[in-house]
């Protein structure tokens, strides 16, 4: 069912890739083989392809500069305010790193990050990111579809949701030393299984062709581009498959303001501010916010029978 959905919604590649680029890629492959690289070149081709070709889901909008992407962050664990996460980034040790994958799956366990990443080919996805605070960015991520990881770990029929957890270590994450005691650490997030399996949903390990900086959620983070940024949990240490809808941090913090779904929706206001418009970081004027952050064509069908004013 899911594969069918993907095929129906997928953007035709010719819409994305100009013919000249397409031809250049073909030529590259042809010449590689002609040059006598033979099988070696062919086996490398998919990796090269992934980094050079624009992914069908990628936007061609102007990308937010690297400096801004890495200096304007909401990562309370590394400090409040937009600038502190970058200043405190050195405190977070991202290697070695392990991730526990458990719950309703066939083979639960704790794995080294390398072992988790090994079978996956990283690809670039240029996504819009819309924060619930009404600012937005365009970021070239490197990562792989969460769906590919989920398939590997074979969830059971009981798995209806996927829950995520950020590292809990106040030594490395000074924001977790509860000064005001207002947050219940660690940060937790979750997705419905169909959302987690959606081909747009990414597990990212890098941006702008570099490893993720700590302030952006190193070494492994979620990217769900049609939802407000707080759903895209950072520095993941646990992925659990659950039967019940898992608790999520901002929803626990202020349930009437932040829902479990948190889909970008210009028609549903935050109780204190409008979500109709947004300011792209670095721009002066605001622009209109798009339904599902511009990914309606891909994801609207997931919510076709839901009242999005109720399930915000």
């Amino acid at each position: 069912m899911l594969i069918k959905k993907t095929a129906a919604n997928a953007i035709v590649s010719s819409e994305i890739t100009p013919e000249s680029v397409y031809k250049a890629r073909r030529d590259f492959l042809k010449y590689s083989i002609h040059a006598g690289m033979g099988l070696a070149a062919l086996s490398q081709a998919p990796a090269l392809w992934a980094t050079t070709a624009a992914h069908a889901f990628s936007t061609d909008e102007a990308q937010t500069p690297y400096k801004k992407v890495t200096r304007y962050n909401n990562f309370v664990e590394l400090g409040s305010g937009k600038a502190y996460p970058a200043k405190n980034a050195h405190r977070l040790k991202t290697s070695p790193w392990s991730v526990t994958i458990d719950g309703e799956i066939e083979n639960p366990g704790t794995y080294d990050l390398e072992d988790i990443l090994k079978p996956h080919t990283l690809e670039e996805r240029i996504y819009r990111l819309r924060c619930v605070e009404t600012w937005s960015m365009v970021i070239p991520w490197q990562g792989f579809a969460l769906a590919d990881l989920i398939k590997r770990f074979k969830p059971t029929s009981k798995a209806k949701y996927v829950a995520f957890e950020t590292l809990h270590d106040p030594k490395q994450l000074p924001g977790q030393r509860s000064r005001f005691g207002s947050f219940d650490w660690p940060y937790v997030e979750g997705l419905r299984m169909d959302e987690a399996m959606h081909p747009l949903t990414l597990l990212a390990t890098g941006l702008y062709g570099k490893d993720l900086p700590a302030q952006n959620g190193a070494p492994l983070r979620l990217v769900v581009p049609w939802k407000y940024g707080f759903k895209s949990i950072k520095s993941i240490v646990r992925i659990s498959f659950t039967e019940q809808q898992p608790p999520t941090t901002w929803n626990k913090q202020s349930p009437e303001e932040y829902g479990f779904y948190a889909n970008v929706n210009p028609t549903v206001s935050h109780p204190r501010w409008s979500q109709k418009r947004e300011r792209r970081i670095g721009h002066f004027f605001k622009q209109d916010t798009l339904m599902f952050n511009g990914y309606a064509e891909q994801v609207a069908s997931l919510y076709s029978d839901m009242d999005l004013h109720k399930w915000y």
Binding site: R71, K82, R279, F284
Partner: peptide, 11 residues
């Protein structure tokens, strides 16, 4: 603003 000190100038 002139020194480009802000990530989000308007904010």
């Amino acid at each position: 603003l002139i020194q480009d000190r802000y990530v989000e100038p308007l904010q």
